[in-house]
Design a protein around this nucleic acid. Structure first.
Length: 109
DNA sequence: ACGGTGACGTCTG
DNA sequence: ACAGACGCCACCG
């Protein structure tokens, strides 16, 4: 329980449920949690997840399919991880992002 | 205790 | 169509 961060834990749960080869957006997670527009907070959770290895934050990108936080992974680590899962990334942008998109409110429903 | 900031998203002009 | 501003919640100084 470590109820230090209620919403944080919720976000981690969702991100952790993201299957390999799939990606989701901050807004999708925020909306799933009921915080529409609180996408910023989701990004913050990812920032904290940076210290946790159980959180595949590299599967979380912005609505444009752009690896906004790849800079935080330490270079192209994020791109390598995604490519390793079969996701093509070019110019910090995921190709066929929509095809790899994973919506928690639908898949996790 | 308060204000500013932050890996975004959506609306309006 | 593009650009700018606002809003959400939590952490840090």
């Amino acid at each position: 329980m470590s109820s230090s961060t209620n919403s944080f834990d919720l976000i981690y749960q969702v991100v952790r449920e993201i299957p390999a080869g799939r990606v989701t957006s901050y807004g999708a997670i925020a909306a799933y949690l009921g915080m529409k527009g609180g996408a910023r907070m989701v990004g913050w959770a990812m920032n904290a997840s940076h210290t946790i290895a159980d959180i595949p934050a590299h599967r979380v990108v912005n609505r444009n399919g752009v690896l906004t936080g790849k800079n935080f992974f330490g270079g192209d680590r994020m791109e390598e991880l995604l490519a390793s899962e079969g996701i093509r990334v070019q110019d910090d942008q995921i190709l066929a992002f929509k095809s790899h998109f994973w919506d928690p409110s639908i898949e996790l429903l």
